[in-house]
């Protein structure tokens, strides 16, 4: 139950954020999708011991979150919910890789810890990037970006329908589960003997709903073709956004800026 409520809340909050009108929201969805793609590729392309070089990537989420007026708390909550999975796998690194990597006068840090933190930071940045994309673009506009990218209509229609009916069905599932738990005190979930009937009845109702949806589509002339509205044209600003960020990502991939700054500060150059 809390799961159901929580995920509904999560979808709605992201939807609401996507309705804002900021500079970032107004950028063409295709450019945002592509920029996110480049960002993710660059982020994961860093080697497992390249820790400091990763850090300038954080400018992207910082700039976007502030420019797009995205509240930090709900987004970070989501990141923290997902991160433990990554940490679970990453934590093995310090166990298996104990070569000293960083030697400071007072401490030695093993390669395992470096690669662990590298995974952690990558996890953090990639999760953030996906959430920022949906929070500044919204499902409908992402769908129109997919359309421009020549993803078949059938898949997009299907994707949008799934997205549309998630909130309807989560509510329906919630009602059924609530009704069940009201009559079965002290149970954490659905009892074995009711697995099939409870889910099965929900499923049959869902199939009937699908039928009604299909009928209502037919009544408005649906014949297998699905037409999305046109996304407004791309401006120079949109292209500059994409090219600018991509250039930045590529530069920080090739130059370890923090190391340069550090060496400038410390004077450990040649």
């Amino acid at each position: 139950m809390p799961n159901l409520v929580e995920s509904l809340y999560n979808i709605r909050i992201l939807d609401e954020l996507a309705e804002k009108r900021t500079i970032i929201h107004n950028i063409h969805p295709l450019m945002k999708v592509l920029t996110t793609g480049v960002y993710l590729m660059v982020t994961v392309s860093f080697g497992k011991y390249e820790l400091s070089g990763l850090l300038p990537l954080i400018f992207y989420p910082v700039v976007l979150i502030t420019l797009a007026d995205i509240p930090i708390v709900p987004i970070f909550k989501r990141v923290l919910l997902v991160l433990p999975l990554i940490i679970g796998i990453g934590l093995f690194n310090p166990l298996f890789d104990k070569n000293p990597m960083i030697v400071l006068p007072w401490i030695q840090i093993s390669g395992g810890w470096i690669s662990f933190f590298s995974i952690l930071i990558k996890g953090f940045l990639t999760i953030l990037a996906a959430l920022i994309l949906i929070a500044t673009t919204g499902m409908t506009r992402i769908a129109s970006a997919l359309r421009i990218m020549r993803i078949p209509r059938l898949f997009i229609m299907q994707l949008l329908l799934t997205y549309r009916y998630i909130s309807v069905l989560i509510e329906e599932v919630g009602r059924v589960v609530r009704a069940y738990s009201l009559r079965s005190p002290g149970e954490k979930g659905i009892r074995f003997s009711n697995w099939g009937s409870l889910t099965g009845q929900l499923l049959i109702r869902t199939l009937e709903r699908a039928q009604r949806v299909y009928h209502s589509m037919c009544c408005r002339g649906f014949a297998g073709e699905y037409n999305v509205g046109r996304e407004k044209g791309m401006g120079i600003g949109d292209i500059v956004y994409f090219v600018g960020w991509s250039l930045y990502f590529v530069i920080i991939r090739y130059f370890n800026i923090p190391a340069m700054i550090g060496s400038l500060m410390m004077g450990v150059g040649k």
């Binding site: 299907q158 799934t162 549309r164 009916y165 998630i166 069905l169 989560i170 869902t206 199939l207 709903r209």
Partner: peptide, 13 residues
């Protein structure tokens, strides 16, 4: 098509 869409939402929920 609607069947796939609505079923997807069902599985999700």
């Amino acid at each position: 098509i609607p069947l796939m869409g609505v079923m997807g939402a069902f599985v999700f929920a």
